[in-house]
Lab assay of single mutants.
Amino acid sequence: MAASAHGSVWGPLRLGIPGLCCRRPPLGLYARMRRLPGPEVSGRSVAAASGPGAWGTDHYCLELLRKRDYEGYLCSLLLPAESRSSVFALRAFNVELAQVKDSVSEKTIGLMRMQFWKKTVEDIYCDNPPHQPVAIELWKAVKRHNLTKRWLMKIVDEREKNLDDKAYRNIKELENYAENTQSSLLYLTLEILGIKDLHADHAASHIGKAQGIVTCLRATPYHGSRRKVFLPMDICMLHGVSQEDFLRRNQDKNVRDVIYDIASQAHLHLKHARSFHKTVPVKAFPAFLQTVSLEDFLKKIQRVDFDIFHPSLQQKNTLLPLYLYIQSWRKTY
């Protein structure tokens, strides 16, 4: 089996927390979720979201995140109150960019949308954001926290390059993509939290790379249903696996070995980020709550012996909000 052949990389499970039942964490995340308004986002309300009498641009960002990046939404709820709305805006910006690729039928249209967001970032730093909910909220975040323009532009530029429907040539190319998107998002989150620390940035770099790799793995069944495969070609070739094997949902050992190798790289990034947690300011830990969902996925895929098409991998963990709150309460990542 794939797991038994390579099992030495995987460390002990961390979500089991001995003695936790003896201490009762304060009510927090679930209460916040219940208090949030929840009407559906419609095209009509989106168009009017920044106008008078609408929910408001902040509510639009929150709803977009809740629907399109639920794990990011849950993590954002546990940030300090003064930072929450800015991170909602930042993550909503990322969602807007991420959904361009799947929402257009022609690359030219995707490039036009990316050009809109490039100009939007430029206009935000000229205090002239367009009348668009996410743009307005992002402008507020930039003004409030003096966010670095370079990180925002890196996210747009990398998403634009990724409009080509090509597999990553190697794991390094996937890591570079993750660094310029997910890690950049974390650098900006640290700025919102008021953290300027080399060790925190180092952790953000590795956690962002782990996030990018896990996202690529999780999306494999969806991409396969659209006749697309984006997994690193070098690892596929190493194990003699073709793109057609993934399109046919082949579950042979060599296919699972490909998934094992890729998942192991995410695991190593996560492990390395945690190896120097004592040197990272505690104030930075809330920015890294996504490690909970990353670890949850890596454990699940290990349990199914790296069968990327196993139905259990597509099921939401209903206990994730609780695990996130516990992680926040324990002040760790």
Rank of each mutant, 00 (worst) to 15 (best):
E106K: 06
A49S: 15
Y325W: 15
M153L: 13
V241M: 06
P129E: 07
H206D: 04
H131W: 11
K316P: 09
K149Y: 05
E96M: 11
C216W: 04
Y325Q: 13
S184C: 14
L198F: 06
T279D: 15
K331D: 09
G72I: 07
A89H: 00
L188S: 12
D164H: 14
F306A: 02
H59S: 11
N180T: 06
E158L: 04
G224C: 11
L320S: 04
L238T: 11
P281Y: 02
T215L: 13
L185Q: 08
P281K: 02
N180L: 10
L298S: 00
V214L: 11
K161I: 10
D257R: 08
A167E: 15
C61P: 07
Q290C: 10
D252G: 14
I262K: 01
S312K: 12
A284T: 06
P52E: 12
E96G: 05
A48W: 15
L324A: 08
I171N: 04
P232S: 00
D234W: 01
C216F: 07
N146H: 15
L270R: 00
S86Q: 06
T148L: 03
V134Q: 02
E173A: 13
D307M: 02
I155Y: 05
R159P: 03
F288A: 00
L193A: 03
K119F: 03
L294E: 01
I195N: 03
D127G: 10
H239L: 02
L163E: 05
P281V: 02
Q315H: 09
A263L: 02
K143P: 00
D123T: 06
L111R: 11
K149Q: 05
P221M: 14
K67W: 07
L190N: 03
D58M: 12
L74E: 01
V292N: 06
S293F: 11
P232A: 02
T332I: 11
Q115C: 09
L64F: 14
W329K: 11
A49V: 14
V282D: 13
T181Q: 03
V46Y: 15
L319K: 12
P133K: 10
D307F: 03
F297Q: 06
R256M: 05
K316V: 02
V100E: 06
K300P: 00
I213Y: 07
N170Y: 08
K154C: 06
T148I: 03
N250W: 12
L190G: 01
G56C: 08
M233I: 08
V95D: 03
G212T: 03
I171T: 08
L198C: 05
S264L: 07
A47K: 05
I213M: 10
K228R: 13
K299S: 11
E106Q: 10
T120I: 15
R150F: 11
Y333Q: 01
H269D: 03
W151R: 08
R144C: 07
A92Y: 03
I192Y: 01
E160C: 12
K271M: 11
Y168K: 01
F285T: 12
I195K: 00
I109R: 07
H267K: 07
L111T: 11
I109P: 12
E179T: 02
L238Y: 12
C216N: 10
P321I: 04
Q182C: 13
Q314G: 09
D305F: 01
E82I: 14
P286Y: 09
V142M: 08
N94V: 04
L97A: 10
K271W: 11
L217T: 02
S76G: 15
G56L: 14
V241W: 01
T189R: 03
Q314R: 10
S76P: 04
D102T: 10
Q315L: 09
D257G: 12
Q132F: 14
G110D: 06
M153C: 13
Q182H: 13
Q132M: 13
S103Q: 12
E82W: 15
Q302C: 09
G110F: 05
K172V: 13
I171H: 04
H277Y: 08
E71F: 06
V142W: 05
V100L: 15
H272T: 14
I262N: 03
L320T: 05
S83K: 15
A200S: 11
G51K: 09
E122Q: 14
K149D: 03
R68A: 12
A219I: 03
K118M: 06
N162R: 08
S275E: 08
Q315G: 07
R150I: 07
Q315F: 09
I262A: 03
R150S: 07
H199P: 05
P80L: 01
I195Q: 08
R68D: 04
L238Q: 13
R150T: 07
M112L: 11
S76D: 02
L322Y: 10
A273G: 10
N250V: 14
D296E: 11
R91W: 06
P80D: 12
R84T: 06
A92P: 03
L90F: 03
Y125G: 03
H267L: 07
Y168V: 14
D234V: 02
I213T: 02
V214E: 02
L193R: 03
D58R: 09
R218E: 05
Q327R: 14
R159G: 04
E82T: 15
E71T: 12
C61A: 11
L147V: 05
G53W: 12
Q211F: 13
W151C: 06
N317C: 10
H310T: 01
R226P: 03
Y177F: 07
S105I: 15
L268D: 08
R248G: 04
V229G: 05
T189E: 06
A47N: 07
F276P: 04
Q265T: 14
D245Q: 13
C216Q: 13
Y73E: 02
S103T: 15
L217G: 01
Y177K: 04
W151A: 05
V156P: 01
T332A: 13
E96C: 10
S85Y: 11
K161P: 03
Y125F: 14
D157Q: 12
F88Y: 10
A263G: 05
L62D: 04
A273L: 00
I308F: 00
S183H: 01
P281C: 05
I213N: 00
T332S: 14
V95F: 05
I235K: 08
V142I: 11
K209S: 02
V280W: 02
V87K: 01
G208Q: 01
P321V: 05
D257T: 10
L74Y: 07
K166I: 13
E82A: 12
A266Q: 01
E122R: 11
H59I: 10
A48N: 15
A49N: 11
Y60M: 07
F297R: 02
D296H: 08
N176D: 12
S264H: 06
Q182W: 15
D102R: 05
I207W: 01
F309A: 04
N94W: 04
S205H: 09
F93E: 01
L97F: 01
V304F: 08
V100K: 05
I308Q: 02
K166Y: 15
T332H: 11
L186H: 04
Q251E: 15
F88A: 15
L268V: 06
R274P: 01
M237R: 06
A48H: 15
Q314N: 10
E191F: 01
K107R: 10
Y222F: 15
M114H: 10
R150H: 07
F230E: 11
V241P: 00
L97P: 00
G72C: 08
Y60T: 06
F276D: 05
V142Y: 05
Q211G: 13
H199G: 07
S86T: 05
M153P: 00
Q243S: 06
I235Y: 08
G212D: 03
I235E: 06
Y222C: 09
K101C: 14
L298W: 05
S105V: 14
L90W: 03
Q211I: 15
L65C: 10
H199T: 13
L64E: 08
I301W: 00
Y187L: 13
N254M: 05
H206F: 05
S312L: 11
L298K: 01
E96L: 11
V292R: 11
D127C: 06
E63K: 10
V304Y: 09
R218N: 05
E71Y: 07
T220A: 15
A167S: 14
V214Q: 02
E173M: 08
A141P: 00
F288P: 01
C126F: 14
V87M: 11
A54I: 13
K278M: 12
N162L: 11
S83W: 13
V104G: 11
D296S: 09
Q302W: 06
L188E: 02
C216A: 12
V95Q: 05
N146Y: 08
Q315P: 06
R159C: 05
Y260K: 06
D123M: 15
R330D: 04
L152H: 03
N170R: 07
Q99I: 09
R68V: 08
A54T: 08
R150L: 08
T189W: 02
P281S: 06
Y125K: 02
S184F: 08
V121E: 04
I171R: 01
H277L: 07
S105H: 12
D165T: 11
V292F: 09
V46G: 04
Y222T: 07
